[in-house]
């Protein structure tokens, strides 16, 4: 009997989550976090994946909800921050033809901690080994960056209407391989907005994402190549130096190809909405 592999179906979601966190890494001005304080966010990523396998198109409706927190562990004299992030709760709901709707709880990852050092503009300076994070945790794409709702801010002062561009290349390890994500984000200081009682600066963003990489799944070599676009707005409370919300769209066209026991080329289109909100 021929059945599609669950792992192959999940892979695009992982890749998207990786892109998603990078696309979110761009803000304005300086972060001004309080040492010892814990910040909590709710994040939601919903939309659909359309994959073509063996000439047949398969649509998967997906919704991922995560409540996460990070503790500001230390801040040095240059303003560099060590943050310890974890999730409070989470679930992944998938709906696809011929399968029952699946709800995967992320409860087993609660309290698994990851540690990251950022400069005051949101640039990652170091990633500590996620020694307390299980392999499964990372295989879901919930790496350090996903749990931290930080975008990169410009180091110079910007006025309304001005824009700045951040380019990042990041190599992420997944399923016995590496995937290179190249992100080119352009932010524009669009204006002011009040969001959930916070006086915010609204940062509109557009971005291009390219990814390519190779992994191993069930003894097969898996190649990933894709590019996509994202757009949306980040709401930044400049006084408190914290992101209050991110609202955006992601559209990604990707190819996943396998070599080994089965040779397959799977075109994938991902169309997702993302929403992240500071809870407290």
């Amino acid at each position: 009997m021929r059945k599609p592999s669950g792992k192959l179906i999940l892979l695009p979601l992982i890749a998207l989550l990786m892109s998603f966190n990078l696309q979110a890494q761009s803000y304005k001005l300086k972060y001004n976090l309080e040492k010892g304080k814990t910040y909590r966010y709710s994040s939601e990523l919903s939309g659909d994946f359309t994959q073509q396998i063996m000439g047949q198109e398969l649509k998967i409706e997906n919704s991922t909800k995560i409540t996460s927190r990070f503790l500001v562990d230390s801040i040095d004299k240059d303003g560099n921050m060590v943050l310890v992030a974890s999730i409070d709760s989470g679930e992944v709901i998938s709906k696809m033809p011929t399968k029952d709707t699946s709800v995967v709880s992320l409860d087993k990852f609660v309290n698994k901690k990851v540690r990251t050092c950022l400069n005051p503009y949101g640039k990652i300076l170091s990633k500590s080994p996620s020694d307390t994070t299980s392999e499964g945790f990372e295989s879901l794409g919930i790496t350090q960056n996903n749990l931290l709702q930080f975008v990169r801010l410009p180091e110079k002062e910007v006025k309304a209407g001005e824009s700045w561009t951040i380019t990042t290349d990041d190599t992420l390890e997944m399923m016995g391989g590496k995937v290179l994500n190249s992100v080119n984000m352009t932010y524009k200081l669009a204006g002011k907005a009040v969001f959930q009682g916070h006086n915010c600066l609204k940062l509109d963003f557009t971005g291009d994402v390219k990814n390519s990489g190779k992994a191993q799944v069930m003894g097969m070599e898996v190649y990933i190549e894709g590019n996509g676009k994202t757009s949306g707005s980040t709401y930044f409370d400049n006084e408190k130096g914290i992101v209050v919300a991110v609202d955006g769209l992601i559209n990604n066209d990707m190819t996943m190809a396998t070599k080994g026991e089965q040779n397959m080329i799977i075109p994938i289109n991902q169309s997702m909405k993302m929403k992240q909100i500071l809870i407290n």
């Binding site: 063996m54 000439g55 390519s212 190649y223 190549e225 996509g228 676009k229 769209l249 559209n251 066209d253 190819t255 190809a257 396998t258 070599k259 089965q262 040779n263 397959m264 080329i265 075109p267 289109n269 169309s271």
Partner: peptide
């Protein structure tokens, strides 16, 4: 219902610098 109008078609390895030709499926 879709924002991207990119011409996806079939991602031919011959048009990719990254995906090897061996991945072409038997059909």
């Amino acid at each position: 219902n879709h924002t991207s109008l990119k011409p996806q078609g079939f991602p031919w390895p011959s048009l990719s610098s990254f995906i090897p030709k061996e991945t072409l499926p038997i059909t």
